[in-house]
Design a protein around this nucleic acid. Structure first.
Lengths: 209, 209
DNA sequence: AAACCCACTGTACCGAAGGGCAGTCCGCGA
DNA sequence: TCGCGGACTGCCCTTCGGTACAGTGGGTTT
């Protein structure tokens, strides 16, 4: 596993040399031939067309980090969107650089604390992180109280017999409720029910076990 | 630096114990008094009011990760919004858990590859470099080719008869494969199978060809 | 050649799941 | 008062799901 550093500027950064003593300076053209899956590559943002380069390296399995002398949230976004896993100030202390290096080599994302909130907050919502969560909750509104309770139990993997016992009713009644749920939600059986509502159980009122 | 684990469920996860042998199970009330700045805390999403707990722990300087049996983009978002630095499947292989642990202790963010794109934005081009990091793929690698195919179909809600038709085999054979899957993954029936692998079927769709 | 894994199939059994038909109780609105 | 919907139940039936027992055939390893 090798570490590479790419920059348009001819001089390397002392901090960086101090942080990664075994790393190698390399040109944007060379890196394509040298690097292998799992390598770490740090790209300075003064590099020609760095977003494209980052995307390419990432696609080929490298853990890519972007460095900048003048960090900005906008540029951090561009870096991350192109597959970079880290975005740091080029003059960060060596310990911090090593830390970021460690993180990205382990499939993590590293951004400066002050940008953290915007990275996790902004994009996610913009992309609709909550996409189909609402529709499902609405679907459940069509169910009666009892039907929801039965559905909840089924979503926990309980059999009809178990549901009957936990709700204090007969297995036949459980089947009756479930039948209503199936037709209301337009599913065939309990399998398709859990498939449709999987991961959504937190949205249903929790009976408290 | 200590590692804590918080869950409402009475049983701890073998995977987790295997990953962090020196970690300690702790209750939501105890953790406030015990933990100090820099500690790592893993919170299961079955914990009462976990988002608030996560926010509080994060505010006090802990590296917090959230675990779930049924990961979803929406829940990952909630976790990160509340200050968690990792969001992982509770049944992830130990190496992966240790990896995530390492990342969050170094101020990084760790999310499953399939959620990465949504956290970071843009299209999912992270696939190439991350294929070996998929937790569920790990889980399924113990299965044979045919067993995976059957599992895939079942995870789409197909009945045994339908699976048989789509794979061009007898229903009896489907049952045979499925039985093997059950025993290998330690589940009782298809219900448990779906509950365990739901939400990840997209990830196991392609390794076929 | 023997041992083994994988894919595949049949017969048979039993419990789970789903649903039709019928009926009871209760509360609520017209 | 009647009608209606929700919750609840019994009986009965069919299909589905899971498994035990019992193989066959192909491929690889020892």
């Amino acid at each position: 596993m090798a570490i590479y550093f790419i920059s348009q500027g001819r001089d390397e950064i002392p901090r960086w040399r101090e942080a990664f003593s075994d790393a190698r300076m390399i040109s944007p053209r060379e890196v394509g031939a040298r690097m292998v899956r799992g390598d770490g590559v740090w790209v300075m943002d003064d590099t020609q067309d760095w977003p494209t380069l980052v995307a390419e390296l990432q696609r080929r399995g490298a853990a890519v980090g972007v460095m900048s002398y003048s960090p900005s949230a906008a540029e951090a976004f561009r870096a991350l969107e192109n597959g970079a896993r880290a975005y740091v100030h080029a003059l960060s202390p060596p310990e911090l650089l090593r830390q970021a290096q460690l993180v990205i080599l382990n499939q993590g994302i590293w951004v400066p604390p002050e940008l953290m909130a915007r990275v996790v907050g902004g994009t996610f919502r913009a992309l609709g992180g909550l996409d189909q969560a609402q529709p499902q909750a609405e679907e459940l509104q069509a169910l009666t109280e009892r039907e929801r309770a039965v559905t909840q139990a089924v979503l926990e993997g309980q059999s009809n017999k178990e549901v009957a016992r936990t709700l204090g009713i007969t297995e036949r009644t459980v089947k009756a409720h479930l039948g209503a749920v199936f037709s209301k939600l337009g599913v065939r059986d309990r399998m398709q029910l859990v498939l449709r509502l999987a991961g959504q159980h937190t949205a249903i009122a929790d009976p408290g076990q």
